[in-house]
Design a protein around this nucleic acid. Structure first.
Length: 308
DNA sequence: TTCCAGGGGTAGA
DNA sequence: TCTACCCATGGA
């Protein structure tokens, strides 16, 4: 077997950009196939390119917030074409939201004062997956289950339906829709313990694999947020909480992810632990306009102003 | 054993 | 639009 080649790629995002906080911004960093090394501050991930080639990515942020750089060490067999390099660069830029503009959010943060103004030094980007399919599947795996269960289910999907790189069987890609769709639904349910989510994820994989549903079209900025939410709610397994999470992953922060964590947090912090209605809880963030999700996220993530 | 989790679908009103 | 009820799975 030929030894894998290494190719170094690099992205230079506009400042301010904080690699560490973006990588570690929420639970996605520890969901397979992502592997985060906290000591070395590296994100490792195995990726399948459009033509089927499987590569391993080691993603680092050696620059500073003011002179940011995302460095990608690609381990691959054979030669990497210019098109494949572009594909990898685009995938990583998408994961780290290199093209998103947070100036308006930072303005609100500075106005808010105290700890909020710390966000304006390049935070606000929440890590996402290279594909919308992966983000929808992972989001469905966060519903009505504890976080440990989410990690278990996603890891099982990758282990069972992912593709390993030659010579590197320990790490696999996130499954393609086709890899899931080609297995009969009943068998799929038995192969990975996803509970009642199994049918939703298999149906999603079938619709995407057949071309009936184009999830990448959801990234179109021309779609209004209400219209986008409607499209998300039309996906079986996606309700209000999951739609708000997916809107965030698609770069829209208008909606709050109302789940048990949100309810408990707002009740404890703003209502002395009293039982409150969802509209009362949501009203806390009304002043943040189209940035409500981020306001809530950094309200609950108290550690953001310490080094991760 | 029972409860419930980073809820959602469906039927019926 | 709102409510009641059901839905697998596994940890606490």
């Amino acid at each position: 077997m030929a030894k894998n080649q290494i190719t170094q790629l690099s992205i230079h995002p506009d400042a301010p950009f904080d690699f560490d906080y973006t990588a570690y911004s929420h639970g996605w960093v520890v969901l397979s196939p992502n592997v985060w090394n906290p000591e070395r501050r590296e994100l490792q991930r195995t990726e399948r390119l459009a033509g089927g080639k499987v590569v391993s990515l080691l993603i680092q942020g050696p620059g500073s917030v003011e002179k940011p750089e995302i460095r990608i060490e690609v381990s691959h067999s054979g030669k990497l074409s210019a098109g494949q390099e572009q594909e990898i660069l685009a995938a990583v830029a998408h994961m780290f939201r290199v093209d998103e503009n947070f100036a308006e959010f930072y303005k609100l943060c500075k106005k808010q004062g105290r700890r909020w103004k710390n966000l304006a030094r390049g935070l606000g980007r929440l890590l996402r997956s290279p594909s919308v399919f992966e983000d929808v599947v992972k989001t469905i795996c966060t519903t009505n289950i504890q976080w440990g269960g989410t990690k278990r289910m996603v890891a099982a999907l990758v282990e069972t339906f992912g593709t390993a790189q030659d010579g590197n069987p320990a790490f696999k890609t996130f499954p393609t829709p086709h890899a899931i769709a080609e297995v009969p639904p009943e068998r799929f349910g038995k192969m990975v313990s996803l509970g009642y989510r199994s049918d939703y994820i298999h149906l999603l994989a079938r619709r995407v694999s057949s071309g009936e549903l184009d999830l990448s079209a959801l990234l179109d900025p021309a779609i209004s947020t209400p219209e986008l939410k409607k499209k998300l709610l039309a996906i079986k397994g996606v309700g209000n909480y999951a739609a708000a999470t997916l809107l965030m992953l698609l770069g829209r922060y208008d909606e709050l992810p109302v789940d048990s964590v949100f309810r408990q947090f707002v009740s404890k912090k703003y209502f002395n632990g009293e039982r409150i209605s969802d509209p009362e809880a949501q009203a806390i963030y009304a002043g943040w306009g189209k940035w409500k999700y981020l306001a809530y996220w950094f309200d609950i993530w108290e550690g953001f102003d310490e080094k991760v």
